[in-house]
Design a protein around this nucleic acid. Sequence first.
DNA 1: TTTAACAAATTTTTT
DNA 2: ATTTGTTAAA
Length: 703
Amino acid sequence: MSLPCGLAPEDGLPVGFQIMSAGLNVSQLQAVHFTQGPSLVLAGAGSGKTRVITQKIAHLISQGMAPQGIAAITFTNKAAAEMRERTKQLVGKLAQETLICTFHSLGVRLLRDHGDALGLKEQFSILGSDDVLGILKDCGGSTDTAAVRQWQWQISSWKNDGLDSSDALRMAKSEDERALAVLMQRYEERLAAYQSVDFDDLIGLPLKLLQRREDIRQLWQSKLQHVLVDEYQDTNATQYELLKLLVGSKAHFTAVGDDDQSIYGWRGATLDNLRKLPLDFPQLRVIKLEQNYRSTSAILRAANAVIASNPKLFEKTLFSELGEGEPVRVLACDNEEHEADRAVARIQSLRSSSQHRAMKDFAILYRANHQARIFEQALRKAQIPYKVSGGQSFFERAEIKDLCAWLRLMANNNDDPAFLRAVTTPKRGIGHQTLAQLGAFAASHRLSMFEALFSHSISAAIPARGLGSLQEFGRFVNDTEFNARAIKGAEDAGAFLHQWLKDLGYERYLFDNEDNEKLAAARWKNVLEFCDWMAKRCGGITDDTAGITTTSPAKSLIDVVQSVALLSTLSGDEKEEDVVTLSTLHAAKGLEWPHVCLVGVNEGLLPFRSDASDDAPQEAQELRIQEERRLMYVGITRAQRTLMVSWLKRRKKGREFINGKPSRFIEEMALDQATVREDPREKLKALRAQFAQRASEEALPPN
DNA sequence: TTTAACAAATTTTTT
DNA sequence: ATTTGTTAAA
């Protein structure tokens, strides 16, 4: 492949450079080579963005930059893992020195190192969102899950905008907001008492830290020579502020993103960050990657047509040199079952046609998780292997959460959510009555539940019977021998875990509490798998817990479990299985497949519409639609060779059936009328139905 | 007071 | 269909 004109870099550059530059196009090379200031790389879908980032890391190193001085920040652990892997392929072991992690794990790192400046012990806990839900229910005295979710959501968005409870209180416009701000304050106090942080704090607190402590800020600014941010369009206000403080006035950073793929507005991401970048950094170099290496022209044309209805932040048009390809297919289905059958039929027919198509070449993409179910059934019936991504994560499983709660509690006795879970698994004669009493006592004395347990005045508050079992539990948790082994026992972590499970009687507990023998066995298997995974993590070979690479030789169980809240899948089990993928559109971002079925593309489903969103102001409605449109764009651009888009003529909504309308995005794809025809088999079926009906009409005597 | 059995409600997207 | 809240039994 010939190098682009004017940029032939052979002379005057370090050895190894030519290998690295091989195969990059002009704009990609520009993006890689611009290192002396801030740059924004607008990377269209499939334009080789990960390649640019990894090549840039390699380039910086080859220019003599210390690998430790480079940070690459992503949003998901998966993206971080892939980036580390691909960097390793370019620079070898040096990749381990580079900080390649998610925003959240970077936050963890900052807080573990410097959290004491904010009154946070090193052993703080990270709360998952259902821990948070539980705390808010307790603080707000409500059991209405839906309502509390709303509070949780509002508090989270305040935090994402960089507001704390006093800001919220000051700015509150209604009585409701004031009440919520007060609740938020109570929530903050609780977290402080529990020595715990939530997901949003993992960004907000490090930001606070860098704002307040100049010494720490200096430390990091001099440590980091270049920061690369992946999926920049997904950053929220606090993440942007954090980035600015990390890079300092030198502003050596590379933001890589695509405004057309911004689909996380609902969790605080804002395109303002993209808009503001050229204003905040006038010397910003903007580079566009417009050549797509993934999809055929037919697919890309549909994608461009859809996104054309959105206002443009930066003008850019993707093009492909992979040829026209198969036309995009649109399919109208009678109902969900029919749609699932059609998707299965499509997979089967493509597989039986000339080329050898693997199962892993296919993906079925949908808007919401619950849509997966019907496709699972159909695939199972057809004996097609599949995996569901973006469903329930391994660490969400009850049995895994049980174990994590135990370990968390050992690490941080003040972790009340962990306490509440551990104290009742297995059942030890302690019920909500006793726990409510303990909780009330703890709250009134501003203690965590564990502290309250051994407080001297506790016996007055709780009947002796319950207190006895509680304190026995407390002693077991703090069993010195166990703790010592958990904290240092790195090499025999596996053996320790098994011993501990036995002492706990966890296996018996699982089987006693589940009358379905098989299910209990599956759970137990999960537990064992989890233990193996933990043990491996503690082994100290190469460790990348929560996306942070550390070279420390051995880690304790406690260290490992503290980052589990950030993980969703057991990393390392990413074995390439030859199976069909079922995925939400959100979880599909960054991935690609030769053949994609985009299903349930209905008005109300793909531009998603909830009853609540109806009475939102006009402008907000429009922004919502734009984000849904980007979601459609993401879906279309996942496909390499063929794309089928289907919609439902009748669909279930809640309990009853309603008539379905094709999504407005289907029309926006501006396909040739000829391609929007129904599948030939579909026609045949319709004909048959007509025939049958006519026959029955004839058979029946008129009236 | 605890636990197990039973009834009812509920679905956007996720670090 | 799964999961949460309520009620009844132990």
